[in-house]
Simulated scan of single mutants.
Amino acid sequence: MFKVGDYVFRKSYKKDVLFKIDSINRQQIVAIKGVTYRILADANIYDLVPAGGLRSTLNERDAIEIIEKNVNKVLEEHKKLDNKRMRKTGKVLHIDGDAFYLNVCLKYYETLGVDAVGENIAEALQPIKVKELIEKYNPDILVLTGHDALQKDGKEDAIESYKNSKYYIEATKEARKIRPSSEQLVIYAGACQSYFEKILLAGADFAASPNRILIHALDPAFIVERIAYCPFYKVLEVTEATKYIVTKGGISGYEVLGKSRDGGPIL
């Protein structure tokens, strides 16, 4: 009936999000990943319907239009910067549990002129690998993301109700052991419906998801661009940091200082 790689919708959620089948067990429970939203879920195979030729929902197509407009706005802002002086923007280490999303984000970092390196690390391994990768790349900005989900009847204040939030929390704590302050390292962590409050408490500067909603795969990239291009002496307000994210209310956090530095004139 279904196989790994098929695109599907969930009937019980009124076909709200397009998923791709990641695995199917003997009990006919299917692990599914969002195609454009950073959600991971389990579904009974009988709750699924084929997506046919569809590769996006109406909401997801609307998101594509928003992304295109926002990219153009960012690039217009960059054109207004003083191009007669050298400029060093913040370096990003993007650790992602999903290889496809990682590559999408890296593509957009390049488009937006953000200096970024990426590592595809499963969420459960991120707490183990994060310090090693920070030492290797010495970033100014760290992204810890992948997939997550809050159980349908789960309690928002219970860590066991979340698929992967505990890994983002532990990875953030590990990162802070070697980069204790946001002046040394700005951290974004989380994915769809993540345990926002606990991630911030662990030491993140920005996190998902205060309203326990789905976030778009590219939301972390738009946050990062704001931080990377903000001058080091300027406080980046949360409203400015989240200005271009696709999912309004999906990410929030604290004010931080920017990571961009201007140099001497280009001769």
Rank of each mutant, 00 (worst) to 15 (best):
Y109G: 04
A191N: 00
K84I: 15
L201P: 00
I95H: 11
D98M: 08
D140V: 15
G118E: 11
T172K: 08
V92A: 10
V104H: 06
I128M: 12
K152I: 13
G118N: 07
Y168N: 03
A202Y: 02
L185H: 08
E183S: 07
L200D: 00
D96H: 10
C105W: 06
S165W: 08
D82Q: 05
R176A: 11
I187E: 01
A149C: 13
V117M: 07
I187S: 03
S181D: 06
E135L: 15
E123N: 08
I178Y: 09
D98G: 05
P127R: 06
A99L: 12
G154C: 07
E123P: 00
S161W: 02
A171W: 03
D115M: 12
R176N: 10
G190P: 00
G118C: 12
N138F: 07
D153Y: 14
K129E: 14
S165L: 10
K80E: 12
A171P: 12
R87N: 04
Y188Q: 04
A116P: 02
A202L: 06
I159S: 01
E77R: 13
A202Q: 02
L142A: 15
M86P: 00
S181T: 15
L81D: 02
V117F: 07
L106T: 01
A202I: 06
I169L: 07
V186A: 01
G90P: 11
Y137C: 12
E132F: 09
S165V: 12
L133G: 09
A202C: 07
L112N: 01
A149N: 14
G90V: 13
L142H: 13
E156Q: 10
E174H: 03
A191P: 00
Q184E: 15
G113W: 11
C192V: 01
Y167A: 09
H78V: 03
Q193H: 05
L112F: 05
D98F: 08
A171E: 07
A171G: 09
D82A: 04
D115G: 01
F196L: 07
H78R: 15
V186D: 01
D140P: 11
K198F: 07
C192M: 02
P139D: 13
D148C: 12
K79W: 11
M86V: 04
G90N: 07
S181H: 10
G146H: 09
A202T: 04
Y167M: 06
M86I: 03
N138I: 11
F100M: 13
E119W: 04
E183Q: 07
L106Q: 07
Y162N: 05
N120C: 12
E197A: 07
L81N: 05
G97F: 06
N83R: 14
T172L: 04
A191K: 03
A191C: 01
E77M: 10
D157W: 11
